[in-house]
């Protein structure tokens, strides 16, 4: 029974990682950059939702929508101000800028909300479900998280496969210049990608803090790094890969926490990542890279 309970919490944590990883992977696929500030957008989303529900007493669903709107705007602004001027710069320059943005968000949050941890109240309205006469308790947060994750996955896949904008995104990720020649507005497409990624980050932030209710300005950084790992694990740039990577990472983390060692669980997660990359250098579902001379 503990096995199933661990599996459920693993899938639930993994779903949060997967939602964050989707943001990483979409941005990487299109802009070819590692957006290290993504983890901090999660934190901003969680704080906005926290403020909306605590100080304005708005219902949870409204607070989530507000958080999504704020994060979407934030994502577009960050992209426009910090990343767009560096479109053709070296990837290292963009990486350092992203780190700068990450520092900026963390310290701005520190100034606005202070360093004292805030207790996030869960946004989920119903109680946990006991199964097998209470032998197995499925928390309401994990149900909502998994369902949210599946819905997001389906919507995103449909969006990128069927809609005009989605097709434009895929074209830009294949070849930016060719896409521009075909009449796709590359800048707008990249902005939309950042907007979607940041909106997802807001959802992830709220779900993460519902399950682990401590909120500080650095809340987002570790889940951010792990979700980034998950994106690489599944093959960065691939949407199903991010999903698979995230869920596997969550399961591995929870299992190593409960069966091997709490302190070493992060080390085990990263060790598995290294093993996978050594066997499949582009991740589980990643595209094969061809080398041009």
């Amino acid at each position: 029974m503990t096995f199933i309970s661990n599996l459920i919490s693993g899938i639930s944590l993994g779903s949060v990682y997967a939602i964050i990883a989707l943001g990483y992977t979409m941005v990487y696929g299109i802009a070819k950059m590692l957006n290290f500030a993504h983890g901090d957008v999660i934190m901003v989303g969680a704080y906005i939702s926290f403020c909306a529900s605590t100080y304005l007493h708005l219902p949870p669903i409204v607070s989530i929508v507000i958080a999504m709107i704020v994060c979407t705007i934030l994502g577009i602004v960050i992209e426009g101000l910090a990343y767009r001027p560096l479109r053709r710069a070296s990837s290292l320059a963009v990486l350092i800028t992203a780190i700068g943005v990450s520092y900026f968000l963390q310290n701005a949050a520190l100034l606005i909300w202070g360093s004292t941890p805030m207790t996030f109240s869960s946004v989920v309205g119903f109680d946990s479900i006991p199964l097998f006469d209470g032998g197995l308790i499925v928390t309401s947060e994990s149900i909502v998280t998994v369902i949210a994750c599946i819905i997001i996955m389906i919507c995103l896949t449909l969006f990128t496969q069927k809609t005009r904008i989605g097709k434009g995104m895929r074209a830009v990720s294949e070849d930016k210049d060719a896409a521009e020649l075909m009449g796709i507005n590359v800048n707008v497409t990249i902005s939309i990608t950042f907007a979607i990624g940041s909106a997802l980050a807001a959802i992830a932030g709220v779900l993460l803090c519902s399950a682990y209710p401590i909120l500080t300005p650095t809340t987002g950084s570790m889940p951010g790094i792990k979700a980034f790992t998950a994106a690489v694990f599944g093959g960065i740039g691939s949407i199903p890969g991010a999903m698979l990577g995230g869920i596997l990472l969550g399961i591995i983390e929870i299992f190593s926490k409960s069966y091997i060692s709490t302190e070493l669980s992060d080390a085990i997660v990263f060790a598995v990542l290294i093993l996978v990359l050594l066997i499949k250098p582009t991740g589980l579902l990643g595209k094969k890279m061809t080398e041009k001379v």
Binding site: S91, F228, D266, P281
Partner: peptide
């Protein structure tokens, strides 16, 4: 060093975290 580019970067990140975790225990 068998890996390339961003993958190499993420693996060095992973090793850094592993070292931190092990010394922590």
């Amino acid at each position: 060093l068998r890996l390339r580019g961003d993958y190499l970067a993420i693996v060095t990140l992973a090793f850094g975290e592993i070292i931190k975790n092990i010394i922590n225990c």
